[in-house]
Design a protein around this nucleic acid. Structure first.
Lengths: 237, 237
DNA sequence: ACTCTCTCTTGATATTTATCAAGCAATTGG
DNA sequence: CCAATTGCTTGATAAATATCAAGAGAGAGT
């Protein structure tokens, strides 16, 4: 692991209250690995042997049932994942694969669980993270149940813009096919929905989105803080 | 609060590791209230002032957006709710209302947060509960994204049967209209889906479901442990 | 017993979303 | 440079789901 990557990991809310020596212990037990794109890191149903921390690149969480597959989240640095599975000592409910070349810190589950049981500050930080992760998932589920497809896309674009400092242009965090799955639509319908958003000030150039008329898009999307506001400080799944 | 209700609350996994005196402190600060059916307990967007514990009756968690409303969960005793909002010191993402006459213990959020910060065992128990709640929600979201409506219903019936000790008959936990919203369908389509399940050994008599041919229903539903298995010990939302 | 109300069901229709089938553009590999 | 592949788009069609409109049945109140 590169020295310059260290601060980002150390500064995760997850490790906020833990002592330096405890943190050192966790990191020294960890593996640090590079992966090319499209590498399957986790197979759903497997036991959760590591807490993964994405240091660079991007990772997709996805899930399958009866021949279908859908995307559950796109993860960007610096962010931990399968925290809940590690703590529950349970099998993973989601699979994970790299989308781009990625570097990951993998902390053995046993170490996480031991520190969790022994270190009050760590337990508090984990509970705080999990409560935010839970709330984020509630928001996702509300969106899925309460919005039609094109509105989901419109609000997703607004959230992306917000996460890029309200930039009027930004690049999609994954292939359109992956974005489509994330938004519970087919690639065909994503394409058509992008077309429909043209009338509301959105322009697409390959992987880059231009929001030419933010007000028009907002008027169409009707964003709702109880769905669209991010959980501040959330960096775990 | 009735003396006979105490053990069920005390035995919640949430309080498993807390000392008796701490538990007494929490309970003595709490309100205990009866509510008739259809009473709004929580409005989404309001701050989370209490951790609610349902002692008797049933409560629906639901959410609204842009004139639509959907059901997020049906809660039965003994179970705590809005734990995540209380810990995050944030507004509620879901509303709550009683479905039947209900009795609830309401523990002020401040007390929960103080004990959480001070009592390691409580923090550990909360994190453990939240990780299970998170995983339960992942399962719900997977189901919503990966299964068509009638299959969702079929698996829901199998889960209800399992929770009733694999009983071949049981009563639905809420009005069909609420069940429909929970399964992301209209009442009309729920009705038609029940009709479709007739061919797979399901018989409906008002609010009671008979599973006459469990094997046929299972063959149709194709249950998946990574969606349908309950998180054991989960009693919080 | 009798409305009245409410919930659920059923049928007809509309809308939304998915699937299938080309086709096009960009990229990759020879 | 030229296939060949890949990712996306577009159009036509099919399937799933929602909406609208009655109507039937059960329970509540008079």
């Amino acid at each position: 692991m590169r020295a310059q990557d260290m601060p980002a990991v150390r500064n995760l809310p997850l490790f906020a209250g833990v002592q330096d020596d405890s943190f050192e212990e966790l990191v020294s037990a960890a593996l640090f690995q590079h992966f090319p794109p499209q590498v399957r890191l986790i197979h759903e149903g497997d036991s959760a042997d590591f807490l993964y921390i994405l240091v660079e690149g991007s990772v997709e969480l996805f899930a399958c049932n009866d021949g279908r597959e859908t995307s559950m989240a796109i993860i960007e640095p610096t962010s931990a994942f399968i925290l809940a599975a590690v703590l529950s000592d349970a099998v993973c409910l989601m699979s994970a694969r790299t989308l781009t070349p990625s570097r990951l810190l993998m902390i053995p589950a046993e170490h996480i669980k031991r520190h969790f049981a022994e270190d009050k500050m760590f337990a508090v930080a984990i509970a705080t993270e999990l409560s935010k992760a839970y709330r984020q998932l509630v928001k996702m589920h509300k969106e899925a149940k309460l919005r039609p497809a094109t509105e989901r896309l419109a609000n997703y674009l607004l959230r992306l813009a917000a996460s890029h400092g309200e930039a009027s242009s930004f690049t999609l965090p994954a292939d359109k096919r992956t974005i489509a799955a994330l938004l519970s639509m087919t690639p065909e319908n994503l394409s058509r929905s992008f077309g429909a958003l043209n009338a509301h000030g959105v322009r697409i150039q390959g992987p880059v989105v231009h929001i030419d008329k933010p007000d028009a898009l907002i008027a169409f999307a009707k964003p709702n803080p109880l769905i669209d506001d991010p959980e501040i400080g959330l960096s775990s799944r």
